[in-house]
Amino acid sequence: MMLTLEQVKAKSAAHLSGLQPVIKDAATALIEFAYAHGVPIMITQGLRTIAEQDSLYAQGRTKPGQIVTNAKGGYSYHNFGVAIDFALLLPDGSVSWDTKRDGDGDGVADWSEVVADAKRLGWEWGGDWTSFKDLPHFQMDFGLSTADYRAGKRPTQAQLSTVVARVAKLQGEEEEAMTADEKKEFEELKVAVKERDGRIAALEARLNIDGKQTYAGGYDDAIKAAKAAGAIKTSADKSKLELNMIQMLYNLGLFNKEAK
């Protein structure tokens, strides 16, 4: 079942909470843009503490695993809440770093679509680096080095306002880009999905798939006979379809009708 946008955003919530407000808004916009283009994503890393960064730096050096960063604590933009890492979010809720995957079937790798959306929003992509390519990584450093951040420098209000304006402008363009026919199709799709979910829920209730429904009376004799014959041990998790089958077999005399 396709995840809703709210479900997709909820997957990233924990990793967005420590980001600088403007960066958080830009990351949320990236999630929304990617989803609108058929590519659900999850933010897997946001703010990292110095200790977390040092632990990550040790991986592949003094700790088991592959080297995943060249930055010690205080030398990564993650430590200052202006960087994120992402992964593709699959329908079953798991994540993938497959850069060639084309989950929406449009002939373009999902990863490339996310990168394109990110660059439109003003994110710098780690995949463009020459010395150490970091394909899941995006950052907005505002022209400041990590040394500047360590020294207490921060983006100016004008720089932050520029990002806010860019995100707002692109969000407006995204909304306008949808034609009247596309909007109609989208609304029809939402209705169809809602109706489908309702049918699935009704079917689950009818078949007692979740095991929560109970059916009082009407099957007592058949159930007792089936238990006595060793055909079943309990009726607690039986669907109505199964109970009807037990009743039919009982009516055909295949169980001991005298069992009480």
Rank of each mutant, 00 (worst) to 15 (best):
Glu195Pro: 05
Phe186Ile: 03
Ala10Tyr: 03
Gly253Ile: 03
Asn244Arg: 11
Ala58Thr: 12
Gly38Trp: 00
Val167Glu: 00
Glu6Thr: 12
Asp102Val: 03
Gln247Leu: 07
Glu195Ala: 06
Ala222Trp: 11
Thr44Val: 12
Val191Tyr: 04
Lys63Trp: 00
Glu174Gln: 09
Gln53Glu: 11
Thr146Pro: 02
Gly122His: 01
Asp106His: 04
Glu174Cys: 03
Ala259Leu: 12
Gly211Asp: 13
Asp220Ser: 07
Phe138Glu: 05
Arg101Tyr: 07
Thr69Asp: 12
Ala168Glu: 10
Thr156His: 10
Ala34Asn: 04
Glu204Phe: 13
Asp92Ala: 02
Ala71Pro: 00
Leu170Gln: 05
Leu189Ile: 14
Lys233His: 12
Gly93Arg: 02
Asp141Ile: 08
Tyr77Ser: 15
Val114Ala: 08
Ser12Gly: 09
Ala205Thr: 15
Pro136Val: 08
Leu3Met: 14
Gln157Thr: 13
Leu189Val: 05
Arg120Ser: 02
Val68Leu: 11
Gln159His: 09
Ala83Arg: 05
Leu47Trp: 02
Met248Ile: 11
Asp106Ile: 11
Val114Asp: 08
Tyr250His: 11
Asp128Lys: 14
Ala229Ser: 11
Asn208Val: 09
Phe138Trp: 14
Lys9Glu: 06
Leu5Thr: 03
Glu176Ser: 06
Asp134Asn: 11
Pro21Glu: 04
Ala192Pro: 11
His137Tyr: 11
Asn208Cys: 12
Leu47Met: 15
Asp210Ala: 09
Gly38Asp: 04
Gln159Asn: 04
Lys11Tyr: 13
Asn79Arg: 02
Gln171Trp: 07
Thr130His: 14
Leu88Val: 11
Gly152Ser: 08
Gly38Tyr: 00
Pro21Tyr: 00
Val22Asp: 05
Ser76Cys: 02
Gly81Trp: 04
Glu52Ser: 13
Ala201Tyr: 10
Thr4Arg: 02
Lys227Asn: 03
Lys184Gly: 09
Ser131Ile: 06
Ala192Trp: 15
Met42Asp: 14
Asp220Cys: 10
Pro155Met: 06
Ser235Val: 15
Lys212Glu: 12
Ile232Arg: 08
Asp134Cys: 13
Ala13Leu: 10
Ala58Gln: 15
Gly198Ala: 05
Leu203Tyr: 09
Lys183Asp: 15
Arg61Gly: 01
Leu241Phe: 13
Asp98Gly: 05
